[in-house]
């Protein structure tokens, strides 16, 4: 039983990494970033490229993927999202377009494949990343043997979530972010550069998705469309947890991860996914503001 709960916990961890970024950009800034899943995809491909071109392993890929996806997120905010604040449907469509663009950029190897140039690690096919030997096998905790890689994923998620919490609640930048969430006009009147902080927030959320991509690359094959279903899961977590509530996102990710893990072990993945969808629909019907939303928006 413990190993099943453990699998659920590691699934929930990946979900949390994906949805933390969404919780910040969607829950806080009111931007539905359809390209969020693509940040996960790009994080995974960064791991692939690090391995192939730099000979670097997954550990090295974590900070690199964070920086790469954060930079891309920053650019997306600056060029597109910034012009569309307060226009929900427009941001949805525009970021969806960006998502397709990014998928095709990877599939077509930045367009170089038209000229017969092949970039090792990109392209339409599947890519795989080797888990470092250090994380292969199991670690014994008491009488239970736990999968090392899954433990690592949980650890990375813990550290990242803690770091996010500290940045949001204990730093001047985090205070500015929280002020903007609650009252953007008053925040500006207090001298906060709302646009600049929003760019940084968006970049940070994208960077978290990049880390999720690195973690994901140790579990699954990597391909250009992998981001879409992941983003859907991320949105489910955020909506079920309650908009703008960091603790709600944490709880909801853990809950959905466990449900997925438990049902998948008892039956199979497809039924597990159906049950997760069912649970989320039920939550939205019964508590439209999400399970853990303490303050209405």
């Amino acid at each position: 039983m413990i190993d099943i709960l453990f699998i659920g916990l590691s699934l929930g961890s990946i979900l949390l990494l994906v949805s933390l970024g969404l919780a910040i950009t969607y829950g806080s800034m009111g931007v539905i970033n359809m390209a969020h899943g693509e940040m996960v995809m790009l994080g995974a491909y960064t791991t692939v490229l690090c391995g192939k071109w730099l000979g670097a392993n997954l550990f090295v890929a974590i900070p690199i993927a964070f920086l790469v996806t954060a930079a891309i997120g920053f650019a997306i905010e600056r060029v597109v999202v910034r012009r569309l604040y307060g226009r929900l449907l427009d941001t949805l469509l525009a970021t969806w377009g960006i998502a397709i663009l990014l998928q095709q950029a990877v599939r077509l190897e930045f367009g170089l494949s038209f000229f017969g140039i092949h970039v090792d690690g990109l392209g339409p096919g599947l890519q795989n990343v080797a888990v470092p030997t250090l994380l292969q096998g199991t670690v014994a905790v008491g009488a239970v043997a736990l999968n090392s890689y899954r433990s690592f994923v949980i650890l990375v998620t813990l550290v990242t979530t803690l770091a996010t919490w500290i940045i949001l609640n204990r730093s001047p930048v985090g205070m500015q972010v929280r002020a903007i969430i609650r009252n953007p006009h008053m925040a500006a009147a207090c001298g906060i550069d709302v646009k600049r902080i929003n760019s940084l927030t968006f970049a940070f959320g994208s960077g978290l998705a990049g880390i999720a991509g690195v973690m994901m690359s140790g579990f699954k094959s990597i391909f250009p469309d992998m981001g879409t279903p992941i983003a859907v899961d991320g949105f489910l977590v955020v909506v079920a947890g309650g908009l703008g509530s960091l603790s709600g996102t944490v709880m909801s990710a853990g809950m959905l991860g466990e449900i997925n893990g438990l049902i998948a072990t008892a039956t199979n993945d497809t039924i597990a996914r159906a049950v997760v969808f069912g649970v989320v629909i039920l939550i939205i019907l019964l508590k439209p503001k999400g399970l853990f939303s303490f303050k209405g928006r």
């Binding site: 205070m175 002020a179 008053m186 207090c190 001298g191």
Partner: peptide, 24 residues
């Protein structure tokens, strides 16, 4: 502003310090 627009779930300290962002 009219209606004061302080932030209800910020502490009094945080609410005051919020103004400080105007003097970098």
């Amino acid at each position: 502003p009219q209606g004061r627009e302080i932030i209800a779930d910020f502490t009094i300290r945080e609410n005051i310090l919020l103004g400080g962002f105007a003097s970098p």
